[in-house]
Nucleic acid binder design. Structure first.
Lengths: 345, 345
DNA sequence: AGGAATCTTGCAAACGTTTGCATGATGCGC
DNA sequence: GCGCATCATGCAAACGTTTGCAAGATTCCT
């Protein structure tokens, strides 16, 4: 009888709230609240009695009520706007890894993470709605997608927001992200150093991050007096991308000798297509990716790429968000990309 | 003046709650609540007036308060216990893809998703704590890890819980997952059909799912009268796994002619190591993976593997959870694995 | 026109915490 | 043993919604 599981014990005499517990302990609800919150103003013996009772009955204060009263929830919202490419973005390795690190960092700081995917085209109100829900103390937006304007609109009126993405001169919202343009330059310089002269950019140039990478490539082409970079747009979902890449290659393969892929994922797909079409890498065509995902190490030949420091990014996002939550004003943070030379260029 | 952004307008005369809005509309808070909730008992004109006012001031009812009063939050908790292998599991492609689909399904059903990673070794109380927080209406546990007992303990006292994992005869908690043992059999049968006789299992056999895959392999070995399956344990994090695989291979490579990897990720790493050590696949050694992640299509040669239907799994998890939330009692759901033959076996 | 049925709205009590203020109890110095 | 500081606790009012109940307003039927 006495060694029953605590959860079972209170099947009828359940202790549902702080008041029940207070009655059991013979004190007032206020005291229980203070005891459980670890406030110093409560007598040590009383505190212990209450704590034991709470443990014994498996009682935990209701976070909703607490949140309501204290006007803070202990939850940070993480939202992934799925812009152009409705589908699939979330399973993109890069975002997922970032999400994992965010979860770690937030947990470490004592926050919970509320995840929301939104399709802005179907729900123009996505950001306000999330913020206004009263469920979250702050929000991290993963990827500006094509929602730069909307985010910018909100930024002035709502401080605890940080965005992963590309930094642009004079923008109002606080952003953490890699210097994509510099990354694009590094990638392209490498292609050139490896002997490429007629270079293509593989990927959609719509999203800001990609646009910046593309611009970086153009910088180098211009500086070196090379022919202009050829843009080969693709979608991000693997199945469609594969076809599109195949089409691009059969049309342009003989006209180019270097490819800068917007993403390692695309680069890996491209590598497969190149092999299928009998094009030698890096001899016929040089290839550089972006992100340095785990897959970059495992392609054959291993992929030369531009590394983004995802862990540092996550740390930066959380760190800045907490500082803003504390009322500080903060600068955007741009992380340096790093060229990782392997075997494709 | 009149076309200012709604969010700006109320810098001083802000409407923070339903009562403010009620005052503006000249009605009682109750009516506003009903109007915004879309209840039928409010006059159409009044409702429109209130809705316009709300839109105009960018007002949204506080979800915390609503949740507190209605005793439901509209949030489903998703928890990933990091068992044996503290690190990295979350960036595992499989879990992440599952998470993405879960986010989709839950959104479609009008629920939000609260994500929590826990390390059970450091926090024995992880599940009760999440459930007792009062922040979530139900919980989905992704992966039993080594926490089978703890989950089982909770299952009887807390109905709205569904677990992704392996089904075991007579267990109390409701689970959705692939028939791992059958999957193991399919994989091993294929290895045998491709000419393997001395087969190894690559991966930790601790976690239940993996143990079941291993058991499936043993089933076939026994049935066919082959030598017993050799277990080659590894960790899951790519860096450590690589070393361990290399070590295993240099020790055992000549004694085996078939490898069943617990995961495509491991299989891909293994493929790289095999190549490095000059072992031909599938001629010297046949290899089969598990999951059918995108990477399986991109290895060289493409990976033969056992497919898990992740989307169906996510749908099943959410569907069952909602049914339990509605008070139905539900059966576990085991999904059939499917052998996908490519080029490594 | 009178009465019943139907709509619409307001009132006020919850939901479970937290916390400023006040009060009672205890200990201290003299 | 008295006054004063310190400590520990209780009281009750918030936080912002929802909702059963009741009452007022309108419509409809005969």
């Amino acid at each position: 009888m006495s060694d029953e599981k605590p959860e079972r014990r209170n099947s009828q005499g359940a202790v549902r709230n702080i008041t029940d517990l207070a009655r059991l302990a013979g004190v007032s609800p206020g005291t229980v609240s203070r005891a459980l919150a670890g406030k110093s103003l409560v007598n040590t013996k009383t505190r212990e009695r209450i704590e034991n009772l709470a443990r014994e009955h498996g009682f935990r204060p209701n976070q909703m009520a607490s949140g309501l009263r204290r006007q803070k929830t202990g939850v940070i919202g993480v939202v992934i706007p799925l812009g152009h490419d409705t589908r699939q973005q979330i399973s993109d390795s890069f975002f997922m890894t970032l999400l994992g690190h965010l979860a770690d960092e937030l947990t470490r700081e004592g926050y919970d993470l509320m995840l929301r995917r939104v399709v802005p085209d179907e729900d123009a109100d996505w950001l306000d709605r999330f913020i206004g829900s009263g469920m979250i103390d702050g929000v991290i937006v993963i990827g500006q997608s094509d929602q730069f304007e909307r985010i910018e609109d909100v930024a002035d009126g709502y401080r605890p927001m940080v965005v992963w993405g590309n930094h642009q001169q004079g923008q109002h919202h606080c952003v953490v992200g890699t210097d994509n343009r510099l990354g694009g330059r590094l990638a392209t310089e490498r292609l050139v150093a490896a002997g490429a002269r007629r270079i293509a950019f593989l990927g959609d140039t719509g999203p800001m991050e990609f646009a910046a990478r593309f611009a970086g490539a153009q910088d180098i082409a211009a500086r070196m007096g090379l022919p202009p970079i050829l843009a080969l747009p693709t979608h991000l979902s693997p199945d469609r991308a594969s076809e599109e890449i195949a089409a691009h290659l059969s049309q342009h393969a003989r006209a180019i000798d270097g490819i800068f892929a917007a993403t390692d994922t695309l680069a890996a797909l491209c590598l497969t297509e190149l092999r299928d079409q009998g094009i030698a890498v890096p001899d016929d065509v040089r290839l550089v990716g972006f992100d340095d995902l785990p897959i970059a190490r495992q392609t054959v030949p291993p992929l030369t790429t531009v590394r983004q420091d995802i862990a540092a990014g996550a740390r930066g996002l959380v760190d800045i968000l907490l500082r803003r939550l504390a009322g500080e004003s903060t600068e955007s943070m741009v992380l340096p990309p790093e060229l990782v030379v392997r075997a494709t260029a």
